[in-house]
Simulated scan of single mutants.
Amino acid sequence: MQLRRCRSASAALGLLLTGLLSQGAASEDRPELSLPLACQPHKTCFIQNYVDIDPGRSAKDYMCGRATYEKHSGVDFRLLSAAATTPPVAVLASADGTVKAVRDGVADVFFKKAKPQDVAGRECGNGVILDHGGGWETQYCHMRQGSVRVAKDQAVKRGDQLGDAGFSGMADFAQVHISVRHDGKIIDPFLPDAAEGKCDPNARGPGMWQPAAAAAFPYKNGEMIGAAFAGAPPTVEALEINDRDVVPLTASSPAIILYGRFINLMKGDLVRFVASGPGSEIFDENAAPLERDKATYVAFAGKRRLGDAWPAGHYSGRVELIRDRGVIATNLVSFDLPGAPGPAATGSEKSGSEKSGASGQEAR
């Protein structure tokens, strides 16, 4: 009996060592990833969604936050809008490899405007799979129709262009989605060695990313991706089509609007708006705290014009994202308003005020 116990212990130890050696080998031969998109981090591109590491029905990202959704299998690097894909934004190979599979010819149509059967079996849209050896592969999804420029079995180097960012397949914003797999299993490139279902709120390493790539995208669960003055409140849908297509603010605009555009907001978050014009403050207001999480959101504050025109001069604004009584994001904007033809009243002094408003919807 004692001998059997020893043999069992030896077998268990052997299995443990084999597992450790196998894990070590996987760590040694796994690719180091560079960014899959030719863009300016936090200016022209942002991480909208991380991998959902929760195997159950809830969703959580690698830092135990909620910047993901159920069963999301990769990382979404989003652009500001569909219009931002022109001129084209290159999708790049994140590591050396061989093209395992390609697909092109899927139309760029926001999923909410399509029928589910239109993308059944082609949820990735136009895409490329790269084989990096040792069981490792990366997949790049939602590329622009007609942009894929590599072929099956072609060798590629890190940084080679695979195609252009788009919104084909199951996508509601312009992006590239990158998935990492090892022996067919989804791996979170930010926390590749975590046990299944385990997140780490103190994770600080680069994971599988090159240090520069990891530094370019520090973890964020809540971010402001734009702010500006406008002559009317924009909508989430309109900004996803064209982030620059907003009603311009002119001297004769019926109201002056200051808006902010956000991703991955959490229940309880609130937005503060401060605006000033020639010689006076226009408003300093808070939107109501959010009643639930929001994947994408637009909030605004405004003031009506009661005079003949808004006065010519310099206007400045500040939009703050506030969480747990602390400011986690700030955007400063300004512009110079030319004078209106004919007599101009001091509109900002005579205006009545419009309550802070907010409009938005989840992208999921």
Rank of each mutant, 00 (worst) to 15 (best):
131 D>I: 02
187 I>D: 03
22 S>E: 11
323 R>Q: 11
148 V>R: 01
21 L>C: 13
179 S>A: 15
70 E>K: 14
363 A>Y: 13
124 C>K: 06
13 L>S: 14
8 S>K: 11
249 L>N: 05
314 H>P: 00
171 A>S: 14
85 T>F: 01
138 T>W: 01
47 I>T: 07
93 A>V: 08
52 D>K: 03
64 C>K: 09
276 S>W: 07
146 G>E: 06
322 I>E: 03
36 P>E: 04
350 K>Q: 14
36 P>Q: 05
123 E>A: 13
153 D>G: 07
215 A>P: 02
339 G>W: 00
84 A>E: 11
82 A>V: 08
210 Q>T: 05
259 Y>N: 04
290 L>Q: 09
25 A>P: 00
2 Q>L: 15
263 I>V: 14
248 P>A: 05
134 G>P: 11
276 S>V: 08
58 S>F: 00
287 A>H: 07
131 D>Q: 02
51 V>R: 04
245 D>M: 05
233 P>A: 13
155 A>F: 01
268 G>N: 09
150 V>P: 02
150 V>N: 04
169 G>L: 06
104 D>M: 06
82 A>Y: 04
286 N>Y: 14
299 A>Y: 05
101 A>I: 01
122 R>K: 15
237 E>K: 10
211 P>N: 01
40 Q>C: 06
154 Q>D: 04
338 P>N: 08
50 Y>A: 06
184 G>A: 04
24 G>F: 07
234 P>E: 09
6 C>R: 15
258 L>H: 10
354 E>R: 11
40 Q>N: 12
69 Y>V: 08
136 W>F: 07
173 F>L: 09
116 P>C: 10
69 Y>C: 06
348 S>G: 09
347 G>W: 06
7 R>C: 14
118 D>M: 08
324 D>Y: 04
63 M>F: 00
134 G>E: 11
268 G>Q: 08
59 A>V: 07
88 P>R: 03
228 A>K: 08
342 G>I: 10
73 S>I: 04
135 G>H: 10
322 I>F: 01
261 R>E: 15
215 A>Y: 01
254 P>I: 13
286 N>E: 12
157 K>W: 00
141 C>Q: 05
8 S>A: 15
139 Q>R: 12
261 R>H: 12
10 S>C: 11
354 E>A: 12
195 A>S: 13
193 D>W: 05
90 A>K: 12
160 D>C: 06
55 P>K: 08
154 Q>S: 06
206 P>T: 01
281 E>Q: 15
72 H>E: 10
208 M>E: 01
84 A>C: 05
21 L>A: 15
251 A>W: 11
240 E>S: 13
85 T>D: 03
288 A>R: 12
176 V>F: 00
187 I>N: 04
176 V>Y: 00
162 L>N: 09
147 S>P: 03
73 S>D: 15
129 I>N: 00
121 G>L: 10
36 P>W: 02
1 M>N: 01
341 P>F: 00
71 K>L: 09
274 V>T: 15
202 N>C: 03
338 P>G: 07
327 V>N: 02
307 G>R: 02
311 P>W: 01
140 Y>W: 04
148 V>C: 03
237 E>W: 00
199 C>A: 09
227 A>Q: 10
77 F>N: 01
235 T>G: 03
253 S>K: 10
212 A>R: 08
212 A>C: 00
209 W>T: 01
58 S>R: 09
199 C>K: 03
